[in-house]
């Protein structure tokens, strides 16, 4: 009887220990995602402010991994290709970070006329991170004269897997209905090719350039949460930065990121 009760107690303790860890784990997954407002209203913004800044990397910069080209060497192997999950430039500038407003509920209209593109050149996606407004078609270019397939691993929207043969220089993908991101894009034919998309419901998203710089313009005056996402460094969804934008003013918010813990 005593053993039985002890066993029960042990089980109970084990449960108490395991349950929260499981919950944490689940939460971590959600935290990787971009945060979108429940609704967004477009309006004219006059005398809006600007948020800009620089994202830098902190820590030892690992050497960029050279990708192994396993096929179509004549086209894909012309130049050395690197894993672009972490691109650190001069002064530790961190490229390819998405910086965005988390809790904006009204502001300028989403630009439905924009024509985002991703080029498949030398068996590499360029750019590595692309913002695609909800409902806008993404154009895929193929100047490689080899077959590619565009495979987008959506879970909120329907996954896309479309063959873009060597004959097809330009291929459009249907606009999506729901905000979602980050979503990975891969080419199954060339397994090393990888890029990331964000399908966004409002226009306050930017991707940092080689200098690690970003700019969000025409922000209606107010106080906002400013979030970031980076493939290798993760997000600040748990503790986003707070910025206050004044009419016509410019506010600077820099970020320093380090490698996400495994």
């Amino acid at each position: 009887m005593k053993t039985y009760m002890l066993a029960c107690l042990a089980l109970l303790l084990a449960c108490c220990y395991v349950m929260p860890t499981l919950a944490d784990h689940h939460e971590a997954g959600e935290m990787e995602m971009l945060q979108f407002p429940e609704s967004y209203k477009a309006m004219a913004v006059s005398n809006g402010g600007t948020i800009s800044g620089t994202v830098t990397f902190e820590g030892d910069v690992p050497e960029m991994k050279v990708l192994e080209i396993t096929k179509d060497e004549a086209v894909c192997g012309l130049t050395e290709k690197h894993d672009e999950s972490l691109v650190v430039g001069e002064g530790n500038a961190l490229k390819n970070t998405i910086v965005y407003l988390i809790d904006i509920s009204q502001g300028k209209a989403l630009d439905k006329k924009t024509k985002p593109e991703i080029d498949q050149k030398g068996c590499k996606f360029t750019p590595h991170v692309q913002i695609v407004p909800v409902g806008v078609r993404l154009t895929m270019l193929n100047n490689d004269r080899v077959n590619h397939n565009v495979h987008i691993f959506s879970s909120v929207n329907k996954p896309v897997n479309k063959q873009q043969t060597k004959n097809r220089k330009k291929m459009q993908l249907a606009g999506v209905k729901k905000a979602e991101g980050p979503v990975q894009m891969k080419c199954d034919i060339h397994g090393w090719m990888s890029a990331w998309l964000a399908y966004v419901p409002h226009p306050y998203f930017a991707v940092t350039d080689e200098m690690g710089k970003f700019t969000l313009e025409d922000v209606p005056p107010g106080t906002y949460q400013l979030g970031y996402w980076h493939e290798a460094c993760g997000t600040n969804s748990k503790e986003p930065a707070t910025v206050t934008v004044e009419a016509g003013g410019t506010v600077t918010q820099d970020f320093t990121l380090s490698m996400k813990k495994m």
């Binding site: 397939n149 495979h151 996954p159 897997n161 479309k162 063959q163 873009q164 043969t165 004959n167 097809r168 291929m171 199954d188």
Partner: peptide
């Protein structure tokens, strides 16, 4: 679905 095998959508064809 869920595999690398794409569906034959119209404009995959010449």
């Amino acid at each position: 679905a869920g595999s690398p095998m794409p569906a034959f959508e119209g404009d995959s064809f010449l």
